[in-house]
Nucleic acid binder design. Structure first.
Lengths: 252, 252
DNA sequence: GAGTGGTCTAGACCACCCT
DNA sequence: GGGTGGTCTAGACCACTCA
C-alpha cells in the first residue's frame, strides 16, 4: 500500500499572522518558521508545491510565489523534476571571497586553532552577540596561514549553548572553513554578515605572528555573522599587518 | 485631445532572442536593452504594465514577471498607484553610507574642489576607465570636510567627452554629491561600484591637509563606479588618516 | 475617479528527473 | 509513466497615488 501523506491542515499557522500582510508573505513566514525549527533537511524534499498549497489552502500560484521568495532568500533550493530542498550553505559565496592579502590569489588561507576556551562575554562581545555581559561564550583563536606562515590572527566568539558541540570536539577535526561546521554541527546557517574595518597598531604579542614590528599599523576587521532571522551568532575580529593588505567590496 | 501612445508592436525585439529561453526572460532582456540605450528616464514612468504586455504580445502575468525581475536587479523601481521608473542612483544607499570617520555621525561630509584639469590618462587610470593610455580625461581634486576642516583628499578621473560639460561648469556650481550631477548634467546614472581598500603612508604634501605627520598610516579607498551596462565612468581615489577611520560593509 | 501596480486564483501545458 | 517544478495565460479584485 503506497505511503500517503495525510492532508494536514495548516491554515491555522497561516492565519496566526497579521492578516494585513499579503497571503503569500504569511505563507512564506509560516514555512520559514518550520524551516527554522529544523523540520526539513537538505537531503529529502519538502512536500510538493501542490500538496503545500492544499495544506495552507492557497492557490498553487500563491504557494509558488512563497516558495520562490524563500528560494531567492537562500533558504530553499528548487530543482525542476526533483523537488524543493532546504538549502545548504554555499561556501563559494561572497562571505569568503574578498579577503586578499599580499599575493594576488583568491585561495582560502589555511588555519590553525591555537586556543579554545569557554569565557564570559565582555561588554563588546555581549553587545555584538546580543547576550548579557558575563554570559558564557565559546572563544576560539586562530592563525590564518599562507603556506606555513601566519599572517592573520582571528578571535572568534560564539554564543552558548548553541555552539556547545564545538566546545567538545577535538581541535584536529575543525575544518578550514567554519561556517559549514556551524551548519553541520550546530544547525546554524550563516545568511548574512556585516564587517567594519579600522586601523590600529600591532601590540607586542601579535607583532611576531604577523611578521611586523610592534606599533606598526594593522588592519582590524570585525565581523558579525547572522542567521536568516538576523540573530548574530558569531562575532569575529581579524587582525593583519597593514602592509600588503587589500580588501575588496562590490557595491550594488 | 488626450495623448495616446500608439500601440507599438515590439514582438520583433522579443523574437530576436533565442526562443529556447523563457518568454519572460526574453521580454526582460528586450526591455533591458531599451533601458541601456537611454530610452527611459528616472523622471517619467515607463508605459503601464498592461500597455507593455500588449506591445510585446504577452500576458500581463508574464510582463509582470519580467518587470519584477528588472526591479529586483535594481534597474527599475515600481511604485504602486504611480508607475514603473528607471531607478536612480540611491543617494541614501550603501554607495554613500559607510564612510564614517572619527565622530559617530553619518552626515555627508562637505567638499571643496581644489583643482580641475584636463589631463592624459596614465596607466592605472586608463586601466580603470577602460580607455587608452594618454586619452584625455577630466581630473578633479577635492577636499572632504567636517565643518571647515579637511580630513579626506579625493582624486577623481572622468572619461571625456562623456563628462565634457563638467570641464566647463563653474566650480561654485558643483554640488556636494557628484553622482546626482553625473545624472543631471551628463545623463550617466551610477548603478554599481566596487571599492578596494589598502593602507599606505602619508606623503609630505597631503599630511598637513589630513592632519597627520608625514609617514603616518593613511587608508586609501579606490572606487570604480559603473553604469548599468558595467562600463566604468568614474575612478576615484580617496585618502584619509588611518587614525579614527572606520569603514562598514554589509554582506549578503 | 481614473489609472497604476499588487494580490490572488484557476488551470493548461511543458521540461525534467526518477525508476 | 508518474510526479516534480517551470512557464504562461486570463481575469477578478484590491490598494495606492495623483489630479
Amino acid at each position: 500500500m503506497p505511503r500517503r501523506t495525510a492532508a494536514v491542515d495548516r491554515r491555522a499557522e497561516r492565519d496566526a499572522l497579521d492578516p494585513r500582510i499579503p497571503l503569500h508573505e504569511r505563507v512564506q513566514e509560516a514555512l520559514r518558521r518550520r524551516v527554522e525549527e529544523g523540520e526539513f533537511s537538505p537531503s529529502s524534499p519538502l512536500p510538493a508545491e501542490g500538496e503545500l498549497a492544499g495544506a495552507y489552502d492557497v492557490s498553487l500560484g500563491t504557494m509558488r510565489r512563497a516558495l520562490a521568495g524563500l528560494a531567492s532568500a537562500g533558504l530553499l533550493e528548487r530543482r525542476q523534476g526533483d523537488g524543493t530542498y532546504l538549502r545548504r550553505a554555499r561556501m563559494d559565496g561572497s562571505l569568503f571571497r574578498f579577503f586578499r592579502h599580499g599575493a594576488d590569489t583568491d585561495a582560502v588561507p589555511g588555519s590553525r586553532i591555537v586556543d579554545r576556551s569557554v569565557t564570559r562575554a565582555d561588554e563588546q562581545v555581549a553587545d555584538a552577540l546580543g547576550c548579557a555581559v558575563g554570559a558564557e561564550v565559546l572563544h576560539l583563536r586562530r592563525h590564518r596561514l599562507r603556506g606555513d606562515v601566519a599572517f592573520l590572527v582571528e578571535d572568534i566568539w560564539l554564543p552558548l549553548p548553541r555552539f556547545a558541540t564545538l566546545a567538545e570536539r577535538p581541535l584536529q577535526e575543525f575544518a578550514n572553513l567554519l561556517y559549514p561546521m556551524y551548519e553541520s554541527e550546530c544547525g546554524s546557517v550563516v545568511a548574512s554578515a556585516s564587517e567594519e574595518l579600522t586601523v590600529g597598531a600591532a601590540d607586542a604579542a601579535e607583532a611576531p605572528v604577523l611578521g611586523c614590528a610592534e606599533g606598526e599599523p594593522v588592519v582590524v576587521v570585525e565581523r558579525r555573522a547572522r542567521l536568516h532571522t538576523g540573530e548574530v551568532i558569531e562575532f569575529r575580529r581579524t587582525r593583519g599587518a597593514a602592509a600588503g593588505f587589500r580588501y575588496r567590496v562590490e557595491i550594488r
